[in-house]
Design a protein around this nucleic acid. Structure first.
Length: 903
DNA sequence: CTCGTGCATGGTT
DNA sequence: CAACCATGCACGA
């Protein structure tokens, strides 16, 4: 531009009328050359012609050919070797090292050779699989404009720092150009806390570690130079830990990070995945090659949680292994599945695609990986088709994970050893994350080598999870993440925080992970049995203090088997804990302890007491409205009633309570039994039940898992007002509400289905899958139906069992495989409908007893009833089927509406 | 009956 | 809303 009429070649400056296009400048424009220069450029002899006396000439490591590595013109003609040195593009092709110089702009952008280059890259893909891992993505595929900006940023940056490896190499401003979004990436990196060293990178102008190092060190690892490129989303960066750097001090400073590299989806990857168009964060289009573009995965930024946060110590360790440049690729917190016995480690898709060899066959290919000890492991890197996408997994990792003593929640890191291109797997124990600000944790973690350390830490871990871990070794640490609904989010949040944090300490991440669930995304709360129990107890206790507000309605949600009452309208009243009992007259009462004198007073069951209650408030028994009054309860009696602090006692107490209340099994009974989870006695059972239900883990106390076998467990009388029963009632209300809602929504459809299916249904007892069930169910709630049921089954405990569980091998036992949350997925063989049926029947019966339909109406919404599936709710119970006559006639809509009203 | 495999599901992001 | 991915789970060995 500036010299449209002057040859861009400084050594020429010839005035020309018509210029020829030369290399692409950082501005995006092409250098205008005179004929002579243009020809030289086209012939690939520009540097030989004009830069012979310039610095930057190097020899191809393979053929010895002299290549000018010092200017943009020849940028595309060589490749930086992982081990150092360069190789001319021809040799590089032969050796399949086609990865473009990462640090440099894609040659394609600068030279006419682009096509070739691109071709190479493309070709590389197939090869990549078997060859070196293509982890260094080809230079960015950005278009000129972007590049230019990038370049400029970079250039300036680099120049400022003056220490970046690239610079050291030479003079290639262009190098900077290749990095796109550096800024962006830097930010990310920084955020991601690549404190390690982010070479200071671009953002702050510090070359980070590199700065301190002699330029040559930088040079030692060509790889280092490579940073940049594509989407910076991936915070990978090259650390020069090798010879040059390795001897340096251990802290971050010592590790030289060449540059954060983004891995992105290099061509190969992109291609293979087919995916998304790639526009990197900067919005730059990758122009590199059609394939890449085609695939384009536009958002390829690796999620922050996968950003490698390797400490220098870790790096050192790694470097120690190979004595070379280490490029952290990514890391991943082991999920329960990953650490499980299955031996499959799910790889983040983008990471897999970006750093592992491209694979087109689901079979994948064997991938060698080395641990910090230098031990080699062979995994199968493969993928499964999944939702039009792929799920990448590393199979056969169990031995390795075990050797590293990793468990769910721990982090495995993947790095690459530059010279060899070997993949290295390191690790960090979750338990160390917190404490170790230092790198010890990491080191130990990384260190597989540091088994000792690891074990120590892991020990702690295992202490927490004795049982599980013992057997499974790396079982899914159910305990780890305890109830963290937070953990999952915590993670996310942490990430953000981390991002904000400066790079100081990688460990920060540790904090985040600590106690987090395995799997940053863990959606399911995992909790150890004991913890679960504790938590549950705590919750139960807390709930025991709650009394419904005047508005009454509460929504019960179940979390990990623990029912949590939600009061949406009015805050619940926190009442004083009491001990319910049925007195000799058969009346329900509750015992409450005076806060002043500690004597126990009897109050009506309906009494809602304030958290602080004293004898003077005993308006029900004037005689005992003073502390001086004698306690009615005898010591023995009290002993029996008193809840104990320990779980066992609690169970005892509760069960006793329950037993005291037992009368006969009726509808409420069924409901109550379903909700028995709150009773300690069921806790033990939960484990057992869990074993039958894959979806529930040991310790799961959800209503499904805790359901005791028929005939077992405490029974509740219809009028029982114990906490359990109340919960059940509330749940039932919610259930009804949801059901009603659901029914309404499907009314039309249901009706049609109903008519179609009715005939067959009559003969079927239980078919959870049957579409008609909803209808039936609806009918179930018709007044008549209820009547009928009432007589037929209310008083007959066996009714529920025999009819409702007819499909189950265990009477009264709920199929743990049931998926209450799923409407249409109940499998024919599944007993999933059982619980619903039980609930329904019980509810029905209960309703009859209660004789009021208000509760349904009270439920503001059914969403709160977490565990029950609306649709499932609709499922007709076997009993109903017998009453088909009554039910069937009712249109769903009617039925639905009737249900609530009826009650 | 257990285990491994491959795919499906659905919660999260 | 779609992609991701942790986990479920059917099926075969």
């Amino acid at each position: 531009m500036m010299s449209s009429n002057v040859c861009f070649n400084n050594n020429c400056k010839e005035l020309v009328e018509k210029t020829r296009k030369g290399w692409r400048r950082r501005t995006g424009e092409f250098a205008d050359l005179c004929d002579r220069c243009g020809s030289a450029y086209d012939d690939g002899k520009f540097c030989e012609t004009f830069h012979l006396n310039s610095s930057g000439w190097r020899s191809c490591e393979s053929c010895g050919k002299q290549i000018h590595c010092g200017c943009i013109v020849s940028f595309h003609t060589f490749v930086l070797l992982d081990a150092g040195g360069i190789e001319c593009i021809s040799c590089a092709r032969k050796s399949f090292i086609l990865t473009p110089n990462p640090a440099w702009p894609p040659p394609s952008l600068f030279l006419p050779l682009q096509p070739e280059r691109i071709k190479d890259v493309n070709n590389w893909n197939p090869i990549a699989g078997s060859g070196p891992v293509p982890w260094r993505q080809a230079p960015s595929l950005f278009n000129g404009s972007t590049i230019q900006n990038e370049l400029q940023h970079k250039a300036s940056f680099l120049e400022a720092t003056g220490s970046i490896n690239m610079l050291s190499l030479g003079e290639r401003p262009s190098a900077s150009s290749s990095e796109n979004n550096i800024k962006d990436s830097c930010e990310k990196l920084m955020n991601g806390k690549l404190k390690i060293g982010l070479p200071g990178t671009l953002e702050n102008g510090h070359a980070g570690l590199n700065r301190e190092e002699p330029p040559k060190s930088c040079i030692s690892g060509p790889r280092q130079l490579s940073y940049a490129n594509n989407d910076l989303s991936a915070p990978s960066f090259c650390l020069t830990v090798g010879s040059a750097c390795k001897n340096e001090p251990t802290d971050h400073s010592k590790v030289s990070v060449s540059v954060p590299q983004q891995t992105t989806l290099s061509t190969p990857l992109g291609k293979q995945l087919g995916g998304h168009a790639k526009v990197d964060c900067a919005g730059e289009m990758q122009v590199r090659n059609s394939k890449t573009r085609g695939d384009g995965r536009g958002k390829h930024h690796l999620l922050p949680r996968y950003w490698p946060r390797i400490s220098d110590q870790e790096l050192q360790q790694l470097s120690g292994v190979s004595n070379s440049v280490i490029t952290p690729l990514f890391e991943k917190m082991l999920s329960a599945s990953d650490a499980g016995r299955i031996g499959r480690l799910v790889l983040p898709k983008k990471c897999a695609e970006a750093y592992f060899p491209p694979i087109s066959n689901p079979e994948g290919l064997p991938l060698k990986m080395q641990d910090l000890k230098g031990k080699e492991w062979l995994f199968q890197f493969r993928f499964w088709p999944n939702n039009n996408s792929r799920m990448y997994v590393l199979e056969g990792v169990t031995p390795c994970i075990q050797s590293m003593q990793l468990q769910a929640g721990d982090i495995v890191t993947f790095s690459r050893i530059e010279p060899e291109g070997k993949l290295v797997m390191g690790c960090r124990k979750a338990s160390t994350i917190t404490a170790d600000q230092g790198s010890e944790a990491c080191s130990s973690g990384n260190g597989v080598a540091a088994n000792g350390n690891v074990s120590t830490k892991s020990t702690k871990f295992s202490e927490e999870v004795p049982a599980n871990s013992t057997k499974k070794g790396f079982s899914s640490i159910t305990h780890v993440a305890a109830a963290d609904s937070t953990s999952a989010r915590a993670e996310t949040k942490v990430s953000d925080d981390l991002v904000k944090e400066s790079l100081g300490n990688n460990r920060s991440i540790c904090c985040k992970r600590k106690g987090s669930t395995p799997g940053s995304k863990s959606k399911r709360l995992r909790i150890d049995n004991e913890d679960l129990i504790e938590l549950k107890v705590t919750v139960v206790q807390a709930q025991g203090l709650m009394r419904p507000p005047s508005s009454g309605a509460s929504t019960v949600i179940v979390i990990e088997g623990c029912e949590i009452e939600e009061y949406e309208q009015d805050a619940p009243i926190i009442g004083r804990p009491t001990i319910p009992q049925i007195d000799h007259l058969g009346e329900k009462i509750q015992w409450v302890q005076c806060e002043d004198c500690f004597k126990w007073r009897k109050v009506p069951d309906s009494a809602v007491l304030p958290s602080r209650w004293i004898c003077s408030e005993n308006s029900w028994d004037p005689e005992r409205s003073v502390c001086s009054a004698v306690q009615e309860l005898t010591a023995d009696h009290l002993r029996d009633l008193l809840p104990h602090n320990n779980k066992a006692s609690k169970k005892k107490k509760t069960s006793k309570q329950e037993m005291d209340l037992v009368e006969h099994l009726d509808g409420l009974d069924a409901l109550a039994n379903l909700a028995i989870l709150e009773e300690g006695e069921t806790l033990p059972a939960s484990s057992q039940a869990t074993t039958k239900h894959p979806r529930h883990r040991p310790g799961c106390t959800c209503i499904v898992c805790i359901q005791p076998p028929s005939g077992k467990g405490p029974k509740h009388e219809q009028s029982c007002d114990c906490i359990v029963c109340k919960s059940v009632k509330r749940r039932f209300k919610t259930l009804m509400l949801k059901r009603e809602k659901k029914l309404s929504e499907k009314e039309a459809e249901a009706e049609v289905a109903c008519q179609k299916l009715q005939p067959p249904l009559a003969g079927q007892l239980l078919d959870a899958d049957d579409i008609q069930e909803p209808i039936e169910d609806a009918g179930h709630f018709s007044p008549q139906h209820r009547e009928l049921n009432n007589e037929g089954s209310v008083d007959d405990p066996s009714y529920l069992n025999e009819k409702k569980f007819s499909a189950s091998p265990y009477k009264g036992e709920i199929d743990l495989n049931a998926k209450p949350e799923r409407d249409d997925e109940l499998s024919p063989g599944s007993d999933s409908g059982s619980m619903m049926r039980i609930l329904q029947d019980a509810a029905e019966q209960y309703v009859r007893h209660c004789g009021n339909g208000s509760f349904v109406g009270n439920q503001k919404n059914g969403d709160g009833a977490g565990e029950t599936n609306p649709s499932n709710c609709v499922i007709v119970s076997g009993s109903h089927q017998t009453d088909v006559d009554h039910n069937r006639p009712l249109p769903i809509g009617t039925a639905a509406s009737l249900a609530p009203n009826d009650q």
